[in-house]
């Protein structure tokens, strides 16, 4: 594997902002062109591009000897292409054949495993709704997930009592569950 590919993968593994900015500037425009050429929108492009990085991140975390056999650009394109095909299938777009942009015409990288599984798709939905909660709700739920004591949570969050900390947790959880259940994509994913 080339040095550049190695350093980009390492940057993703470490969630390194400089690397991710570089990846965004360098590769996002061509992925966006591809998505838009194939019936997508800018929002779809953003979603697919980010999800491709998450797919690589998950692979890096679960497969210790993870390597890629082509350039990073081609690999990103292959993952984005597969994710977008899957999405088009869900939307039942009547598209006989996906069109490649010129620069990717003859390039494709073999991806052995499926790019994402239904559970990961559901996680994406839950996580995006979680990130749309107020900062206060996100923090209180994270503290509970990290098994921080009620006393500590009340102190960190500036709540008057431990009882209120617990109440706030349930309120935030209720908001999150309701938003997920109300999201039409939830019914697509179950």
């Amino acid at each position: 594997m080339h040095y550049i590919e190695e350093s980009l993968l390492e940057g993703i593994r470490l969630n390194d902002t400089d690397t991710l900015e570089y990846i965004y500037k360098k590769f996002y425009p061509s992925i966006k062109n591809f998505i838009i050429l194939n019936s997508g929108t800018e929002e779809d492009s953003k979603d697919i591009f980010q999800e491709s990085i998450i797919v690589i991140y998950r692979r890096l975390k679960t497969q210790k000897d993870f390597t890629i056999s082509c350039s990073f650009k081609t690999y990103m394109y292959s993952i984005s292409r597969n994710l977008w095909l899957k999405e088009l299938e869900k939307r039942k777009t009547e598209q006989a054949k996906i069109k490649n942009t010129e620069e990717f015409e003859s390039t494709n990288c073999e991806i052995q495993d499926p790019v994402s599984n239904p559970k990961e798709e559901r996680y994406k939905l839950y996580q995006n709704h979680f990130l749309s909660l107020s900062k206060d709700c996100q923090q209180v739920l994270r503290l509970f997930m990290d098994k921080v004591s009620l006393k500590e949570i009340a102190k960190i969050m500036g709540y008057t009592s431990e009882k209120y900390a617990k109440k706030r947790k349930y309120q935030c959880k209720e908001i999150l569950v309701k938003r997920i259940k109300n999201d039409p994509y939830y019914y697509k994913s179950i």
Binding site: N15, I54, Y57, R58, K61, R122, Y123, Y126, Q127, F130, L131, L141, R142, M145
Partner: peptide
């Protein structure tokens, strides 16, 4: 899902 702090 929300325990996946790194992914979040």
């Amino acid at each position: 899902a929300i325990s996946e702090t790194n992914v979040l």
